[in-house]
Each structure stands twice: as C-alpha cells, then as structure tokens.
Amino acid sequence: MNNDEIIAKGRRCIDIEAEALRQTSTRLGDDFAQVATAVFTILNDGKKLIFSGIGKSADIARKLVGTFNSIGAPSTFLDPVNALHGDMGLCRKGDALLAFSNSGETEELLKLVPLLKRFDTLAIAITSKSDSTLAILCDYSLTYSAEKEACPLDLAPTASSTASMAIGDALAMVTLEWRAFSREDFVKFHPGGSLGKSFAASVDDIMRSEGQYAQASDDATCQECLERMTNSNSGCIALTDSAGALSGVFTDGDARRLILKDANFLDKHVSDYMTRNPITIKQGSLAIEALRIFEAQNIDDLIVVDSDGRPAGVIDGQDLTKARIV
C-alpha cells in the first residue's frame, strides 16, 4: 500500500467508529436515565458496582472499573467464569451488576445473571442487541449502536467496543455530576503521578515569594507602587499597614482606569485608590483551592497571606497554568 491508501484506510476506520458513536448518542433515551438513576441510588446507599464481561468486553469493563473508582464510585471486576467457582463472594445485597456483551448471548454471563439475583443484585446489560437474551434477563439494558465493525472482515471488535466504552463513560460522567464530585474530591483519589503532584501542590509551591512580587506600605505613592510592580514584572502590588498586615491591593488595571479619571494620581497615596480587604488565600492551602477562587471571583492575581495576615506571596493566574493546575 502507498501512503495515500494507508491514510484512507485509517480514516475509514475512524469514520466508522465515529458513526457508531453518533448513532449511540442519538438513540440515548429514557433507558439511560433510568440506569443512571439506579446507579446513583445504589452508590448513595453505600453499595458497589460490579462490572463483568468476557474477551474484549472484559477489557472494557476493567477500564470502566478504573474510571468509576477514580470518581469515588466503588467498583470491582468480576470474571464470570471465576464467579462460578467462588468469586461471587464479593457480591452483596443491593449491589449492581453491569454485564457487557456485544451480542448479548455470552454464555458465561447468561449463567451469571440468574445466580447473582440470589443476592438481590440489580442487573444491567450493556449490549448492541436490545432483544438479546442478556437484555431480557437483566433488570435494565443500555443499547449502543455498531452497525458494522471498522475491521475490513467485520470481525475484530472496533466500532462496537468503542461505542460500548463510550456509553460506560457517559454513565460515569453523569454519575460524577449528579454526585457533585469536586476537584478537591478528585485530588483525594489521585495522589500519585504527575496528575496527583499537580493537584496536591500547595500554594507555597507555586506562589511568587519574597523578592518575586511587588509589596509596599499603603502610605506609598501610586508612582512608587507602579515602579515596584514594573521592577518585579507584577500585575499587582500587595499593600501593608504599619503592622505589616495586608491592608489592600493595587493592580495595573486600577492604574489604567485612574489614568482616564485623574491624570495627577501618581503623586497621591495609593491608599486612596487601593482595593481594601482583597481576596486572599492562606499559606499552606492546596493550589486547587486557589484555582477555585480564580474561577469564582474572576481575578488575575491572588495574595497569599500567613497566619498573621501578612503577605507571603502572590499567585498570578498564569502560574496555575505553568504548574499544570489547569
């Protein structure tokens, strides 16, 4: 094959899978809402989700176990073969089984579902066949669309596996929003790796500390403040009272607005124009808390204060991007 043929075949594969996703999205209806409601109720009752499947469906189920666990929804994988030889011991009354089978006729799952119902376990089928035996056996079913596989032989699971995983992801994200899962919650479950490090960072790790930000007494002139802001390449200056506690903040935005109102402001005390009682964050707080403040207050700079209310540093909105907090 030449390059053009290779690219064309690659695009064909992606196009077929994209079409499967589009059709799956279009047909999403009340059945999805019912399953989402059932999952929400089960998790709120302190129960868990049990994912199961054979072959590629098992791989999809295991991936979704990871996704649900990462958003605080207790989940586990149950091998349907091993379940028949003792592993059903992990099942408890009120749990939910999510059984994945493209055909809906996977023999091992058809044996498993009736057995799990002895535990008063809710059964949910995820399949491409709404009239399959699995769908009929289960209490609920979610049906995805995959009219044909991207495989030229129409054999290797491609479009079907993509659609199956997507409908599971959709259920996970609805669960996340419904349970009001926050960024702070996400941090608790992701303490390791680069993701965990960025989320677990404190404001002390990312703030501009002494010598890197502008600070002055609130009896300084506006011109003196602007000079310090320029020298430190800061968009704001932290202002302190006679005791050294933060008393206000003055920003380059304030300066631009003053130019239009009072051309002689440079020789006046900055205390006449500063923002008193500015928004702050305490030293030692999580950086993710700073992000929440930036998003809620629509500010460009955030002053970090110590336990005595003295300026300890400044966080510029761009610092969060550099630290990969956003």
Rank of each mutant, 00 (worst) to 15 (best):
residue 1 M to Y: 09
residue 8 A to G: 04
residue 24 T to G: 13
residue 27 R to H: 11
residue 33 A to W: 09
residue 36 A to H: 06
residue 40 F to R: 10
residue 43 L to D: 06
residue 44 N to G: 15
residue 45 D to L: 07
residue 50 I to L: 11
residue 51 F to N: 08
residue 52 S to E: 08
residue 55 G to V: 09
residue 61 A to R: 02
residue 64 L to S: 10
residue 67 T to L: 13
residue 70 S to K: 01
residue 71 I to C: 08
residue 71 I to R: 01
residue 73 A to E: 03
residue 73 A to F: 02
residue 78 L to R: 02
residue 78 L to M: 13
residue 79 D to K: 05
residue 81 V to A: 13
residue 81 V to D: 08
residue 90 L to D: 05
residue 92 R to Y: 04
residue 92 R to E: 15
residue 95 D to P: 05
residue 96 A to N: 03
residue 100 F to W: 06
residue 103 S to N: 06
residue 104 G to C: 03
residue 104 G to Q: 01
residue 104 G to F: 00
residue 106 T to M: 02
residue 106 T to I: 02
residue 111 K to N: 11
residue 111 K to L: 09
residue 112 L to R: 01
residue 117 K to M: 09
residue 120 D to E: 15
residue 120 D to L: 13
residue 121 T to G: 02
residue 124 I to S: 01
residue 125 A to M: 04
residue 128 S to L: 05
residue 129 K to C: 14
residue 131 D to Y: 12
residue 136 I to L: 15
residue 136 I to G: 09
residue 139 D to P: 07
residue 140 Y to H: 15
residue 143 T to A: 07
residue 143 T to D: 08
residue 144 Y to D: 09
residue 147 E to N: 15
residue 149 E to N: 03
residue 149 E to S: 02
residue 151 C to V: 05
residue 154 D to A: 08
residue 155 L to D: 05
residue 157 P to D: 07
residue 158 T to W: 00
residue 162 T to W: 02
residue 165 M to V: 10
residue 166 A to T: 13
residue 167 I to F: 03
residue 168 G to M: 07
residue 168 G to I: 06
residue 174 V to W: 03
residue 178 W to F: 11
residue 179 R to W: 05
residue 181 F to T: 04
residue 184 E to K: 09
residue 185 D to G: 03
residue 185 D to C: 03
residue 187 V to H: 03
residue 192 G to E: 11
residue 196 G to S: 12
residue 197 K to Y: 08
residue 200 A to C: 14
residue 210 E to I: 09
residue 213 Y to W: 10
residue 218 D to S: 07
residue 223 Q to P: 04
residue 228 R to P: 05
residue 228 R to L: 15
residue 229 M to C: 04
residue 233 N to F: 12
residue 233 N to I: 12
residue 234 S to N: 02
residue 234 S to F: 00
residue 238 A to E: 01
residue 238 A to S: 14
residue 241 D to H: 00
residue 249 V to R: 00
residue 250 F to C: 00
residue 251 T to Y: 00
residue 253 G to K: 12
residue 256 R to W: 08
residue 258 L to S: 03
residue 264 N to W: 07
residue 267 D to C: 09
residue 267 D to W: 10
residue 267 D to N: 14
residue 270 V to W: 06
residue 274 M to Y: 10
residue 274 M to W: 09
residue 277 N to P: 13
residue 280 T to K: 13
residue 281 I to W: 04
residue 284 G to R: 09
residue 284 G to K: 15
residue 289 E to Q: 11
residue 290 A to N: 03
residue 292 R to V: 06
residue 296 A to D: 08
residue 296 A to T: 12
residue 298 N to I: 03
residue 300 D to E: 15
residue 300 D to C: 05
residue 302 L to V: 04
residue 305 V to Q: 04
residue 307 S to H: 10
residue 308 D to E: 14
residue 312 A to S: 15
residue 313 G to T: 07
residue 316 D to A: 15
residue 321 T to P: 01
residue 322 K to W: 04
